[in-house]
Design a protein around this nucleic acid. Sequence first.
DNA 1: TTTCTGGGCCTACAT
DNA 2: GGCCCAGAAA
Length: 733
Amino acid sequence: MAAPELQQAALDELIASLNPVQREAVMHLEGPLLIFAGAGSGKTRVLTTRIANLIAQRKVWPDRLLAVTFTNKAAREMRARVGRLVDGADEMWVGTFHHTAVRMLRRDAERLGVPRSFTIFDEDDSRAALKRVLDDLRLDPKKYPLSAILAQISKAKNELVDPETYQVDTYRDEIVRRCYERYEKVLRQSGGLDFDDLIVKVVRLLQGDEEARERWRDRFRYVLVDEYQDTNHAQYVLVNLIAGEHRNLAVVGDDDQSIYGFRGADVRNILNFKKDYPEAKVVNLEQNYRSTQDILDAAHNVIRNNEERAPKRLWTDRLDRERVQAAQLYNEVEEAEYVADEIARLRSTEGRRSGDFAVLYRINAQSRAFEDVFGRRRIPYRLVGGIRFWERREVKDLLAYLRLIQNPADTVSFARIVNVPRRKIGPVSVDAVVAAAAETGRDVLEVLANPDAVPNLPKPALAPLGRFRQEVASLRATLGALTPGELIEHVIEVTGLEGYYADGGPQGEARIENLRELRGLAGEFDSNPDRAEALETFLTEVTLRSDVDAYAEDEEGVTLITLHMVKGLEFPVVFLVGMEENLLPHRRAVENPQEMPEERRLCYVGITRAQDRLYLTCSFKRHLYGRSEASFPSRFLQEIPQGLLGPPRRGAAPVAPPRRGFRERFVERQVQAAPVPPPVQRYHEGDRVRHAKFGMGTVMKSTLTRTDEELVVRFDDAGVRIMNATYAQLAKQ
DNA sequence: TTTCTGGGCCTACAT
DNA sequence: GGCCCAGAAA
């Protein structure tokens, strides 16, 4: 740790190096603050410097700061960067909404009637719990699909609606309400909380328990929320419960990058911040330090087609240019081949490393062609997401053992593994045991201790259930003595899981390998001397971990990643692939136009990841969901002016709009605007101009759009402005 | 009652 | 291409 005066010097230097707008944000310490932080605008620098400044200037104890980030990775980075500037960064509460909520709940759960060692249910577990409910209510799963009901329950929770207050207008609503009610009961009896509950429970705690509310408010005197555009209603209420009174709340975000609407995110939270906090200071970070102007122009021309957005435009003082490459390939394999060719070319001509490249796509299934081609061509790659490690069957099975050991009330985990490996215990027996547990309020181990008292339990299941009980009980006896890693070894040994997965083939091998990897990952928690706590932490981390969290910037390999997970990352060379109707934008949005703006933002996020070079590709034919179909270039491609696109490289065709008639059959007709004369370029980079209000300035760039000429002008006294040539009435000097 | 197999169905994004 | 369920065999 550096001496305080050295740190102070580093902090001073950092503040001096900021641009004026960034500095305004850093110097605003008390009261509400809204930072609109465009892509690549140096947001992290601003936030970490501001926190360090708060600690240094205001002598705020770091443990009274709460910073909510979007990923665990972002949290780690923030903590590390603040730590370089001031002491005590470890004391800050930095984490995702879910992590923060868990930490709060572990302290106050009992005040809510939730057991302290609650189990966190991931989506898989929620499905299993709801499946049980649907069976109990004898609902036809074809008429009431699990995923639809689950989505409706999740939506209700995100809006803080309980089963009692659930609005019922139709019979179907009533069915959903009943499912919701029963589902909550299953969770309660299992000592489980689903993802949404974590937030909801904290809200209920703060609303209903004055002592807790005052304590947490006092604790978090300064609150910062990153990616505020992606907060849902429950999270919004949570933030305001903590910070609404002292009003030391800083929120950061970019409405153009709001891409989690499907998860309940509500852009209005950021757009209405000024209404909630009229005294708020608002700062707009629009200078971009990442991309070339051509890339920013392409991004702007796409996002400007969204109607409800705060008007703004990113600009850069980078002078190098490289037009965006757009190419249409025959099918997804040739698309991948084209990308591989370009990677090989840039590696040899520009000395790029494999880690400089990223392939961004809409859906995980698109990674397949790239994995195949890169594998064949020996191009190293790193796949982020996809079939996730933590969601693999064998991993979930083993975790279910750990969860049952830790929380014997967890009937969902019990039902998952009681017959894994095969023990001749079928669904009829499982139902009987779970029903008995629900009926008597006992946990699974207690019920199994006295199986004669279980109604309708098939006799042949008695002996195997007894053996199962003994296995779990003996494992549970080691709870305080073994580290998580040792416990995993022990589980594998006692249950014979490896033998169960071994099928003599590569799949079995992979499964066993995954179990060993899990053991290795658990090793990170072995240093905690409190073994029970170590297990609890391990299980929490595992459930709330996201795939980007493990992503390290400095490793080699081309990154393959979805547009959702790539937010917050940047790459020198970006390939945004599958730019096709029904893919980007996704079919759901094409059928449901109110979802279109979010698809456009997704495209915007992808484009703005690129630093030096951007490739947009689409395929003429695409093989998806088991069949091959004709594809059409994305409307977003058509939104980028031809002048920004460079000629395609060898082996690729330029993106041509499909022939008339052909296209109309498949793609909804776009509303034709009244014809306008094409604009003429009147200004050029470097021109000196005079504006009636802003005075003298220099044109930094001029872009022809479909209807006008857009100018970025740096005025000698009024800073950088973006204007349309038609309206600006500039006089050339 | 449990286990195994084949056919039908649906298909993002993810804490 | 993966998941769920129905129906047959043990």
